[in-house]
Deep mutational scan, measured.
Amino acid sequence: SLEEAIRRAEEALRKGQTFEYAGIRVTTQEALEKFRKWAEKQK
């Protein structure tokens, strides 16, 4: 689910890792916010 993907992205960010979902790379807090906004639109 998208909620699960967001949780995994947050977890990866805390560990300093890269999270990738549907071709979207989350490597920074800013990218995480963009990913969250994108995920909201997918619902």
Rank of each mutant, 00 (worst) to 15 (best):
S1K: 11
S1Y: 14
S1W: 15
S1G: 13
S1V: 13
S1M: 11
S1E: 13
S1L: 12
L2Y: 10
L2M: 08
L2V: 07
L2D: 01
L2E: 01
L2P: 05
E3K: 10
E3V: 10
E3W: 08
E3M: 12
E3P: 07
E3S: 12
E3D: 14
E3G: 09
E4D: 14
E4T: 10
E4Y: 05
E4H: 10
E4Q: 10
A5R: 04
I6Q: 02
I6N: 01
I6H: 01
I6Y: 07
I6M: 08
I6V: 15
I6T: 04
I6R: 01
R7M: 12
R7F: 09
R7A: 12
R8I: 07
R8A: 13
R8Y: 09
R8K: 11
R8N: 12
A9M: 08
A9R: 00
A9G: 05
A9T: 01
A9W: 04
E10F: 06
E10K: 06
E10A: 09
E10W: 05
E10T: 10
E10Y: 06
E10G: 06
E10V: 10
E10S: 06
E10D: 06
E11M: 04
E11Y: 01
E11I: 09
E11D: 12
E11G: 05
E11T: 06
E11S: 07
A12L: 07
A12E: 03
A12K: 05
A12F: 08
A12R: 04
L13Q: 02
L13W: 05
L13Y: 04
L13M: 07
L13G: 01
R14Q: 12
R14P: 01
R14E: 12
K15I: 11
K15Y: 08
K15H: 11
K15N: 15
K15L: 15
K15M: 14
G16R: 03
G16D: 06
G16Q: 04
G16P: 00
G16H: 06
G16W: 03
G16N: 08
G16T: 02
Q17D: 13
Q17P: 03
Q17G: 12
Q17E: 15
Q17Y: 10
Q17L: 14
Q17K: 11
Q17S: 10
T18V: 15
T18I: 15
T18M: 12
T18L: 11
T18Q: 09
T18P: 14
F19L: 02
F19Q: 00
F19W: 04
F19M: 01
F19E: 02
F19H: 02
F19V: 02
F19Y: 08
E20A: 04
E20N: 05
E20V: 09
E20D: 07
E20M: 05
E20H: 06
E20I: 10
Y21L: 05
Y21F: 10
Y21T: 03
Y21V: 06
Y21D: 03
Y21I: 09
Y21N: 02
Y21W: 12
A22H: 15
A22R: 08
A22M: 15
A22G: 11
A22W: 07
A22I: 06
A22K: 11
G23H: 05
G23P: 01
G23A: 03
G23Y: 03
G23C: 12
G23V: 01
G23K: 03
G23F: 03
G23W: 06
G23L: 01
I24T: 04
I24L: 08
I24Y: 08
I24E: 03
I24D: 01
R25E: 13
R25P: 07
R25L: 15
R25G: 05
R25H: 13
R25I: 15
V26F: 12
V26M: 08
V26K: 00
V26Y: 08
V26E: 01
T27Y: 06
T27N: 14
T27I: 07
T27D: 15
T27M: 10
T27C: 11
T27R: 08
T28D: 14
T28S: 13
T28A: 04
T28L: 05
T28P: 02
T28E: 03
T28V: 03
T28R: 01
T28G: 06
T28K: 02
T28N: 13
Q29W: 14
Q29S: 09
Q29G: 07
Q29Y: 13
Q29H: 12
Q29M: 14
E30T: 07
E30N: 07
E30R: 07
E30Y: 04
A31N: 09
A31H: 14
A31D: 15
A31Y: 04
A31G: 14
A31V: 07
A31I: 06
L32Q: 00
L32I: 04
L32P: 00
E33W: 03
E33M: 07
E33V: 08
E33P: 00
K34M: 14
K34E: 15
K34H: 13
K34F: 13
K34D: 14
K34S: 11
F35T: 00
F35W: 05
F35S: 00
F35K: 00
F35N: 00
F35I: 04
F35E: 00
R36N: 03
R36I: 15
R36E: 07
R36V: 13
R36F: 07
R36K: 15
R36A: 06
K37P: 00
K37Y: 11
K37C: 09
K37D: 14
W38S: 02
W38P: 00
W38E: 03
W38A: 03
A39L: 12
A39F: 08
A39H: 03
A39I: 13
E40L: 06
E40V: 05
E40F: 05
E40D: 10
E40G: 05
E40I: 06
E40H: 06
E40A: 07
K41P: 03
K41S: 15
K41I: 12
K41Q: 15
K41V: 11
K41Y: 11
Q42A: 10
Q42H: 13
Q42T: 09
Q42P: 04
K43L: 15
K43V: 14
K43H: 12
K43R: 10
K43N: 11
K43W: 12
K43G: 11
K43T: 12
K43Q: 14
